[in-house]
Design a protein around this nucleic acid. Structure first.
Length: 491
RNA sequence: GGCCCCAUCGUCUAGCCCGGCCUAGGACACCAGGUUUUCAUCCUGGCGACAGGGGUUCGAAUCCCCUUGGGGUCACCA
């Protein structure tokens, strides 16, 4: 088994947006394949015709690609085991089901959903575990034929053999299930459509999947699947069940406790490198001390055996810190490129304007680059640059602090007079900074006495980039107008 | 509830497999200080954990058992 070609897969179901937990599963599968020279397969599990949509499928592929997780075989790229969309493999599933039926590993069950409901209700009331009672397990062949011919609907159930099922999980070690605990589960529904536990094995067998790494919620499915491999007499793949990603409440990450979709974070402006890095950190560590690392580092070092066993609470604070790290470390040009769509979306500038004033925009970004943690944070921080000079929105607390100082209005008026002269003479930001310090000193003031009102008048905020750079960004006329306007508003 | 999985700072984790180097390391968050025109960055320091109990051993965070706690799962969903 170990000398089989290494083949891994990620098999999302297009019934919703790509979950961040799914993205991490894909990442670890991908990394393992890349590390060991294996093949990474993408397969779409769209057997739930009710909920699967082409839109979701497209979005999932796009999201994975955006992350940089390229697959070697998949629904769009094709490959030697095509098709890679389960809905297109149903004939094969039925064929395999018939083979199992013929071999006695499966049987027809005529029990109606209604009877099963009643059965489960009775079991529940007696405090028993809900399980199929195998009423149809030993039906004589002629009776089965007769009822089928009579138009009765039947599902196909797997006949779970006695004994126990054990397998080695590469994250957890050996896991044992008593087969008596495993229900005779449905392989084919009454309409002949195959169910998840069945198709997954059919396709993994047909696609020669050698390693199955997936979320821990699938751990309890594994005995069913191992039993199926045995029935098929095919090699059982290596398993590894990844710890769950948990919400702040310690339960499986759900919409109740935060954003669950990869897209959510993308839309919120997290750098993709930071997302990837953070996903790694949920359940795996490079060396225990390095927090910031690339997917190359992951690929060079990833081992399924090093994955943590316990569930990991999604630590948004750390994620945001990491995102900021990536933005700070990135080039100005690139940060600007990536912020641009958010600026446009916020209605601050349109694309033509952005192109036209690109160098100006670069300077704007330079001022905020070490302050933002996500690209989406830029627009709100720089909105003051686009406000009318007479109606710069003052942050209430900042304004309150300045008003308490009391001397702001006359000071600003006086300073504006001085500044007008300097600006007219073409002073650089650095020269202005120096001149202003001298100006403050001459009057026996403390720096904040001027700078706080000045910042408020210019930006409406209490913090931000260098004031003289801000003046340069605004231009002399607008800056002066804001300072004089500020003197008026604060008088 | 049955079954299965898990258990190191508030959070993510290193250490555990191959007991001693662990007075348990790193990071986020938090607190304090420094730098700065402010905010942020950056630097320094602080707070803070081996769930509990039994074993095994000269010695246990590391091995075994029990308890407790948490999670997952129990469909003609995936």
């Amino acid at each position: 088994m170990s000398d089989r070609p290494l083949r891994l897969r990620f098999a999302p179901s297009p019934t919703g947006r790509l979950h961040v937990g799914g993205a991490r599963t894909a990442l670890f599968n991908w990394a393992y394949a890349r590390r060991h020279g294996g093949t990474f397969v993408l397969r779409i599990e769209d057997t739930d015709a009710e909920r699967s949509t082409p839109e979701h499928e497209r979005a999932i592929l796009e999201g994975l690609r955006w992350l940089g997780l390229e697959w070697d075989e998949g629904p769009d790229t094709g490959g030697p085991y095509a098709p890679y969309r389960q809905s297109e493999r149903i004939e094969r599933h039925r064929e395999l089901a018939r083979a199992l039926l013929a071999a006695g590993h499966a049987y027809r069950c005529f029990c109606t959903p209604e009877r099963l409901d009643v059965l489960r209700a009775e079991q529940a009331s007696r405090g028993e575990k809900p399980a199929y009672d195998r009423r149809c397990a030993e039906l004589p062949r002629d009776e089965v034929e007769r009822r089928l011919a009579g138009g009765e609907r039947a599902v196909l159930r797997f006949r779970v053999p006695p004994g126990e099922t054990r397998f080695v999980d590469h994250v957890r070690g050996e896991v044992v299930f008593q087969n008596a605990e495993v229900d005779d589960w449905v392989m084919l529904r009454a309409d002949e459509s195959p169910t998840y536990n069945f198709v997954v094995v059919c396709d993994d067998v047909d696609m020669r999947i050698s390693h199955v790494f997936r979320g821990e919620e699938h751990l309890v499915n594994t005995p069913k699947q191992v039993l199926l491999y045995r029935a098929f007499e095919r090699p059982i793949p290596e398993f590894g069940h990844l710890p769950l990603m948990l919400g702040a409440d310690g339960k499986k990450l759900s919409k109740r406790t935060g954003d669950t979709a990869l897209e959510d974070y993308r839309e919120k402006g997290y750098p993709r490198e930071a997302i990837l890095n953070f996903l790694c950190l949920q359940g795996w560590a490079l060396d225990g001390s390095t927090e910031v690392f690339s997917t190359d580092d992951l690929v060079a070092n990833f081992d399924i055996a090093d994955v943590t066993k316990g569930g990991a609470i999604f630590d948004l604070d750390k994620f945001r810190w990491l995102a900021g790290e990536y933005i700070r470390a990135d080039s100005l040009e690139r940060v600007a490129e990536r912020c641009a769509p958010f600026v446009v979306a916020a209605g601050l500038m349109d694309e033509a304007e952005l192109r036209e004033r690109w160098n100006w925009f670069l300077e704007v970004v330079r001022g905020e680059k070490e302050r933002i943690r996500t690209y989406a944070e830029l627009p709100e921080r720089i909105a003051y640059l686009f406000a009318g000079d007479e109606e710069v929105p003052y942050h209430p607390e900042a304004e309150e602090r300045v008003r308490r100082q009391g001397t702001a209005a006359p000071l600003l008026r006086e300073y504006a007079g001085w500044l007008r002269g300097e600006l007219a003479a073409g002073a650089t930001p650095a020269a202005l900074a120096e001149g202003t310090r001298a100006w403050v000193k001459e009057r026996g003031l403390k720096s904040p006495e001027l700078f706080q009102p000045l910042r408020l008048a210019l930006t409406g905020q209490s913090g931000g980039p260098d004031l003289f750079e801000t003046i340069a960004l605004l231009g002399a006329e607008r800056a002066l107008r804001r300072i004089e306007g500020g003197a008026g508003r604060l008088a």
